[in-house]
Simulated scan of single mutants.
Amino acid sequence: MRRIYIVALLALMCVAAKAQDSAAVPKVIKTPAGYTSQIDVVYTKVNGWDGRMDLYLAPKDKAPSPVVINIHGGGWNKGRKEDQSGWNAFFKKGYAVANVEYRLSQAAPAPAAIEDVRCALIYIVEHAKELNIDVNKIVIMGGSAGAHLALMGGLLENDHKFDTNCKTTKTIKVAAIIDQYGIADVSDWAYGPHKTSKSAIQWLGDRAKEKGFAESISPITYVKKSSPPTIIVHGDADPVVPYEQSVILYKKYQDMGVKSQFVTVAGGQHGKFTPEKKTELNAQIMEFLKSVGVHQ
């Protein structure tokens, strides 16, 4: 009996190891002919940590390309750039892609992730010429916590309060933001009346009860008349990030007169949309970017 138990235990351990190895395998990104890849480009260094991103660059024999900066989600405490993919629609339009990693809350609490995303954005602006990127056609996007960071990266514009690791004299301005079911109000997600998240409290760290600090790292605080055009996508049955956050964020955009679009996915949960709906959303996103002049 004991031998059977040991054999069964070893079999389970083997299955678990295989699953872990499978999860560790990065997704293969297929790019069109003429594209080049630069993997694990270090965009910043902070206290021994290297901030890395993967670049997929459009052919340099053409005019400078638009770029989409992609930021993964995961409640600021999990996720990695290697798990990201699905940029074919951008490649077909001649975009470069920058796929960014950032410090998770276990390594450094708020506002570290915002600092890192700003550094990645500044790196793109500072190196635009050598990367053959059009600084007037920078798009920043993400899902969930990644959307929160995309919003912060773009809405801060030339407010350099989180740029101490990457000081610059360049103008920082993105052409558009793609917000997919993102957190607009960090304090509300931590303590609000709709849905609350331990991830938010973990990310806030020792400053979890400081309302002013939470406001300073919340996108809704920074929407103003000069803000970049933004498309917001959110399922109205999201069990993780309150749909109401996007409703309020969109109203703020409208009140400020900023070009924006709010796409509600009826019955949609936290990014778990049907393949047909994802195709439809991709088309809407690309049409929005076309409407703001990012691509033809």
Rank of each mutant, 00 (worst) to 15 (best):
G257M: 04
D255S: 10
T264Y: 11
H270K: 04
D238A: 10
P242R: 03
G268F: 01
I248S: 15
S260L: 09
V247P: 14
G267H: 01
Y253E: 07
A266Y: 09
V247S: 13
S260I: 05
I248G: 06
G257W: 09
Q261F: 07
E244K: 15
D238V: 00
A237E: 07
H234A: 11
E276K: 13
K251G: 07
H270M: 06
V233P: 00
I231V: 13
G257E: 08
H270D: 07
G267S: 05
Q245D: 09
V258G: 12
V263L: 14
D238Q: 02
Q261S: 13
H270V: 02
V247C: 11
E276S: 08
F273S: 00
A266P: 04
H270S: 06
V263F: 11
D236V: 03
K252A: 14
M256Q: 15
F273M: 02
I231M: 14
K277C: 12
G267M: 03
K272H: 13
P242M: 04
F273H: 01
Q245C: 05
V240N: 11
P239S: 05
K259N: 15
V263P: 03
S260A: 10
I248R: 15
G267A: 02
H234Q: 10
F273K: 00
G271Y: 09
K272D: 10
G267P: 02
V240L: 13
P239K: 05
G268V: 00
V265L: 02
K259D: 14
V233C: 01
Q254N: 15
Q269A: 11
K259C: 12
S260P: 07
G257R: 04
S246W: 03
V263K: 10
I232T: 09
H234Y: 12
K252T: 14
E276P: 03
P275N: 06
T264L: 09
G257P: 08
V265I: 09
V265Y: 01
K252G: 06
K251Q: 14
F262W: 15
G257L: 06
Y250T: 02
G271N: 08
K252S: 06
V233K: 00
H234D: 05
P242W: 08
G257C: 08
G267Q: 01
H234L: 08
V258A: 11
I232D: 11
V240F: 09
V258T: 13
Y250M: 09
P275A: 09
Q269H: 12
Y250S: 10
K277A: 13
I248P: 10
V263W: 08
V263E: 10
V233Q: 00
K251D: 12
V247F: 12
F273L: 02
D236W: 04
D255Y: 09
D236S: 04
Q269D: 13
D236R: 05
P242K: 01
I231N: 12
I232K: 08
E244W: 06
V263Q: 10
K251T: 02
S260H: 02
G271C: 06
Y243G: 00
T274V: 05
K277D: 14
S246Y: 08
F262Y: 15
K272V: 02
I248H: 15
F262A: 07
K272E: 06
L249A: 05
A237G: 02
S246F: 09
A266W: 08
